[in-house]
Simulated scan of single mutants.
Amino acid sequence: MNEPADVVTVRLRKGLQLRDRDTILHGRETGVVKKLANGGFVEVHEPLRPAARHRLTAHEQHEPLVLEPAVDGHGVRREVRRSHRLRAWLSRRYFAEQVRKPSARHYLSDTQHPEHVHEITAGGNTDGRQ
């Protein structure tokens, strides 16, 4: 039932969500590569401004709709309409494979790693504003 256009759209959407998540956690790539004392190389990332970080994380994370059971706790059957089943199916197709946005705890723990090099810009701040 997967149409080629549907598969391509889901892959593009997931790729864009992963890119946004990576940008939030690691910052903007500057294109500067530094050589470490041990001979390794790291790319310098510039942290995002709070406004840019907010823009990437301000959206709601919707959960897929779940159909209620056909029989409730008292043994009474309830009617499950085709429209409800269709809504639940469409909701699962659209929301099930979304990339979760990072929590504040995840953001703080992931940005404290030593391999993330942040360089101070010419203006003396680390958020990229001059």
Rank of each mutant, 00 (worst) to 15 (best):
V7H: 08
R53A: 04
R92S: 09
S103I: 04
L86S: 10
A58P: 00
G40Q: 09
Q112H: 13
G124P: 03
L56T: 02
N2L: 15
Q98E: 10
R53P: 00
T30L: 06
V33A: 07
P64I: 09
V80I: 15
S91H: 07
D20K: 11
E3I: 12
L56G: 03
H84I: 04
H116G: 00
H113N: 04
R21N: 08
V66M: 09
G27L: 01
H45P: 01
E29C: 07
K34R: 14
P69W: 01
L56R: 04
F95K: 04
Q17Y: 08
E3Y: 13
E3N: 13
I24E: 04
P47H: 02
D110W: 01
D127W: 04
G73L: 12
A122T: 06
R129P: 00
Q112W: 08
L86D: 11
V33D: 12
K35R: 11
T23G: 03
Q17M: 15
P47S: 04
P69Q: 01
H113P: 00
V10T: 11
H118S: 09
G123N: 06
K101S: 13
Q61G: 03
I24G: 01
H26K: 14
D20Q: 09
P114H: 04
T121W: 05
V10Y: 07
G39E: 04
D20M: 09
P50C: 02
Q130S: 13
L25P: 00
A104D: 09
M1F: 15
L36D: 01
V99G: 08
F95Y: 09
H74D: 15
V66S: 11
E29D: 08
D20V: 05
P47F: 01
E63K: 13
S83P: 05
H54W: 11
R129A: 06
N125P: 00
D110A: 11
H113V: 14
N38K: 07
A52L: 05
I120K: 08
A58V: 08
L65K: 14
L48T: 00
R100V: 15
R87P: 01
A58G: 04
H54V: 08
R81L: 15
P69M: 01
V7D: 08
L36P: 00
L56C: 03
E68V: 13
R87C: 09
H113L: 08
K14S: 07
L16I: 11
T57Q: 03
R105E: 14
E119W: 10
E46G: 06
T57I: 06
T23C: 11
H45A: 06
T23S: 11
G73D: 14
R13C: 07
H26M: 10
V32G: 00
A96Q: 10
V71I: 05
T126V: 12
R129I: 05
I120F: 03
D72T: 04
G123K: 00
D6K: 15
D20Y: 03
R28T: 03
W89D: 09
H84L: 12
P50V: 04
V117M: 06
L16T: 14
R77E: 14
V44W: 02
H106I: 07
D127K: 03
R81F: 12
V32D: 06
H118Q: 10
V33I: 15
H62G: 02
G27P: 01
E79N: 15
L90R: 14
T57R: 02
N2P: 15
A52D: 07
R87T: 07
G124R: 06
H113T: 12
R105L: 13
V10H: 12
D72G: 04
G128E: 01
P50A: 05
S91K: 09
A58Q: 11
V71W: 02
